[in-house]
Structures are given as structure tokens and as C-alpha cells.
Design a protein around this nucleic acid. Sequence first.
RNA 1: GGAGAGAUGGCAGAGUGGUCGAAUGCGGCGGUCUUGAAAACCGUUAGGCCGAAAGGUCUCGAGGGUUCGAAUCCCUCUCUCUCCGCCA
Length: 447
Amino acid sequence: MTPSPTCFLWSASSFVSFTKPPNRMIDIKYLRENPDAVRTALAKKKFSCDLDTVLAFDTERRTKITEAEQAKSEQNSANKAMAQLPKGSPEFLEKVKEMKAVAARVKALEAEVRTVEERFQAAFLTIPNLPHTSVPEGKTEDDNQVFSTWGDLETKPAHAVPHWDIPWFDQLIDFERGVKAAGAGFPFYVGDMARLVRALIHLFLESARKNGYEEVLPPIVVNAASATATGQLPDKEGQMYYDPNEGLYLIPTAEVPVTNFYRDEILPAEALPICRCAYTPCFRREAGSWGSHVRGLNRLHQFDKVELVKWTDAESSFDELEKLRVDVEGILQALDLPYRVLLMCGGDIGFPHAKQYDLEVYAHGQGRWLEVSSCSNFTDFQARRAGIRYRGPDGKPVTAHTLNGSGLAIPRVLAAILENNLQADGTVRVPQVLQAFMGQETIGFTK
RNA sequence: GGAGAGAUGGCAGAGUGGUCGAAUGCGGCGGUCUUGAAAACCGUUAGGCCGAAAGGUCUCGAGGGUUCGAAUCCCUCUCUCUCCGCCA
């Protein structure tokens, strides 16, 4: 077997280290040394948090740690001396009496350190990742920049309708029977539609493979530790399906298991960047976000998606983000779907993101842009939490950078295909790239 | 579901109250030797935190307890493995 050139092979046991990293978010040392730079960056994110308090807690904590460690040091050397004394001798007993007080003091100081540490952590964890300098100013989604637009937006099909109004839609994507089997938001894809979904999955995975991403087929449930590492827990617990019997969560995206592949490991620098792709079903409870405006394929509780994940060193992650975006764009181009790329503004990118692009396809029937991918660089924010590091030039561990992007989410791509490729005879033209795989040029029924 | 065993460094595997962050072996790295390599031999080889550094401190699955002192004793939890049953 010959390894592909893009795939760095090694045995899992040859380098890993499973020690626990601190559960921190941004780099406290950076904050300490550059408080003003952090303040400026956070302002761009329209995020208010009290940096002065965090810094004060940090100082308090460090002072207390030093104090406690000094006491501990005294105790340790005294204990070492005691080991030399004959047990039960008068000197020994005298020493024991003496050391009781020291032990009590150590215990008290350790408790204080714990208190101060917790206070600091609680404040520190409220600081989001810092946006990159290239991220535009802005408060809401209205301030996102249109980075680029591709494809034909002018020639709207004369008879274009929202996909749910296509006469045969309910037969090939059966929501009603999905309700019977599972519940709202869990449709059956039937016949040619099921095959079309499979064709899309195949296209997405093959496209990723050609771009150097190694395919993995991950678990679609994860434990709490994994969900915490990628940031779903504790804040977004309500968005995941949960099995309390096993303590397992159904994944909302393949990002969760795939990123956790290297959790608490130190990677060899020469392995980076590592690029992986994974197809999985994704599950989202979307509690409270269900409205009449969400119809058809626009929002589901279960959907299929191919996810792209990268681990990089600290220097190249923003370059890799651009490559990631281009890789995803290539798929939409292959499908000949018009799309635009949004460069998300500081106020609209998520808590752990340093920079984010959203890709939206245009669905002519609804006359709307539909988000089909979000490509993000988390820099070291997620990796610090997940304990993913690599060995730097000096041999010391360095926190890695992680990135991910959908490539792509199936239902909305499918919606755009149905709406944009609807033909006069009532059938939908299968995108050229999928015709060979499907063995047919159209799906659906003629009028 | 029933019964049992175990969790120590990259891996294997010692260690049952103090001199143990931890023997030994393997692997990795550096060196000697060699035309080159192998072998042999010598050295080296965890991570977190505090610190400018020197250094200090913590970590032997996780959490709590006993003790002047815990990898070692006690309690709780988690996970893994083996056998039986069941199932794909």
C-alpha cells in the first residue's frame, strides 16, 4: 500500500502525549502583555467584558500561587529531613508536632489558591477569541462584506417556485411520513431523491479528496469531554440531542468528533497541516428557532453534511483558511450554482472565531440566499480548549490552530438545485457533474 | 444483563507510607566506532503552572479522605479489558 502524498502516516502510539492542558481560551500571557491590543480587538467584536477585572484576578492569583508554593516548598524540605530521623525518636516527635502547623498552613493556602483560581477562570472564560485584522468592522449581519459573487443571477427560470411548491416534492421528500416515523424535521428522501443525496455526498467527498483531505468516517455520537473541547458544551447543550443513559450527544456537525481525533495530543510539526474530511448526518434540536418562515429543506433536525477540518501551525492558519474557502467554492462551481462569499464582520462572527466566511447559494424559487457553508479559523482558541498542540522548532509544545468549513451541507444545496434547475416540463435537471453517477439527466415527474 | 481483572512516562512494565517524577526494557534523539549502514557502547528522552532567570511547585485514570509525609492506605466516580449470555 502506498500512502498518498497528502497523507502523513504514523502510528498513534509513536508520539502522543495525553497530559491535560489547561482549560483556557485566549492566551493569558498575551492579554497580560498586550491589554490594549486585546481591548481594541474585542471592540471590533462588539463584545464587552471587563478586562481590568480579569487582569486584577490574574495578578491576585499569581501572587497567591507563589505564596502557596513557598509554603509547600518549606514543607517538602522539612519532610525530606524527617525521613532521615529515626522514627519515634524524641527529635522526630518534636518535628511532627512542628510540622502539623505547617501542614495546616499549606492546606489553607491551597484552598485560597483554589478560590482565587476559580474566580479568575470564570472571568477569563468570558473573553472570546480575537478577530483577525482583516475582519471588517460591523455590528450585525447587515455589515458583512460581500467578498465575491459567482455565477448567473440574471437568468431566473420563468417558472421558478420555492422547492416545496414543486408538485412532486412531497413524494420524493416525504415530511409527513417522517413525522410518523420520527417527528417534524426528519424527512424521508425517496427513490431518485435519495440517490441524488448520495450522489452529492459522493461528489463532496471526492472533491475534498482531490484537494488533499483524508477521509474519515467518525462516530456520530460524542461524549461530554468531546463536546466541551469543541465548544458545544456548556453553552449550547440545548441544541444537541442527548442520551442520558449513555451520556452521549448526537453530533450537530462532524467538526465535533473529527476535531477531537487529536484531543490532548502533541503532533509532530512536520505532520501539519493535517486536512481531513468527513461525511456524517448532523442532528440539531433547533429548539425555539422553528417558525413559519422555515419551510421545506431550509431547516431540519437531521441533515447530511460533509465537513472539512484542518489542523495547522500558528503561522499558516489564515493562508489555510483562504485555501479552505477556495476548496469549498470549487464544489459550488462544479454544481454550477450561483453563490456569494460573505466576509463576516466583527460583530457577526462567533465567540470562538478569529475569521469567518459564509458561503450562500442563490435559490431562484425563494429568491433568497441560503447559507450552505461556513468556513472558519479558530486560531488557537479551540485547540487550547481541546489540548491540541504540536512541537515547535525549539522542541516545546505549541498550541495548534484549527479550522473547519462545511463542504457542504446537503439540504440547502439540494433546495437550490431543485429551484434553479426546474425545467418547463416539471422535471429538475441533474447537475452535469452528477449525471454520470446518477445515470440520468433529470429527476422528478413531468407535468 | 451476569462474573472477574485492571488503569503508572511514546510503548511495555516494576514499584504497597518517606531518599519516587518514578527501576528496567523497547522505541526516539545525539555521539563513539564504520567507506557507509547494522551491531555494540556512551549520553539523552513527559507535561502543566509560577518565575526575567536561577529555581520552585503540581501531575502515577478523576474527585475526596487519612497522615508531619501518599503512586503506595480508605471512600466515591469514570473508563478499559477478559469470560458467560444476548444481538448485528
